[in-house]
Amino acid sequence: MRIGADCGQAEVLAGAIALGEAGDAERNAYREHLSVCRRCLVSIGGEREIERVMSVIGQAREQEQWQPQARSLFSRAKSRGPFLRWSAAVVAALLVVFVARQGYQSHPVVVNSVTPPAQTSVTAEQEARVVAALGTQAVPKREHHAESLAFSARENAAQTITVKVSFNAAGKPTHCKGVHHANSQKLVATLCDMVMRGR
């Protein structure tokens, strides 16, 4: 087996060696390649180096002590920590946009107060409707599950974000701007980006 200076093929061989799937022919071909390719020699290394790197995974597997707790098929963990808190803020913002769209009378419509704590009673159905209405997948689907909304309103109480969204005659968002967003420019920018992309 000869691979010459083909580094892509050398990667395949090195992968085979790493997984213990290479025979003598493959090993010889890899050695031969290393003798002419300094780049692979430096970036991948020889067989001993491959073994050293792969031993880390073997060691981790052998030392694995984590025993996942058995769960009922239909139960969910109560809290998902900061991940949820922020997704909830996004959901809250999207909900207000949705309400604004539903209540559209004349354009532009201005939405001018988004306060995450006020949204703690939002139902999963409402969330799903918001996301569906905006046609965005940006909010993770698991956060639509009902239990995920029992999140920490108190912790978010200090964080009030105000966003103005304008809509055209068709009810599509045309402009989004943060109005009051102390230390949250990035969040507002991302929220607006999601709103606009959800058109």
Binding site: E11, V12, G15, A18, L19, S43, G45, E49, V53
Partner: peptide
């Protein structure tokens, strides 16, 4: 299978780099 081996190799490069 070759694609898997190649991915393993590339992953290994990163592992090695981190180590």
């Amino acid at each position: 299978a070759d694609a898997v081996r190649q991915r393993v190799c590339r992953a290994m490069k990163t592992l090695r780099h981190v180590m």
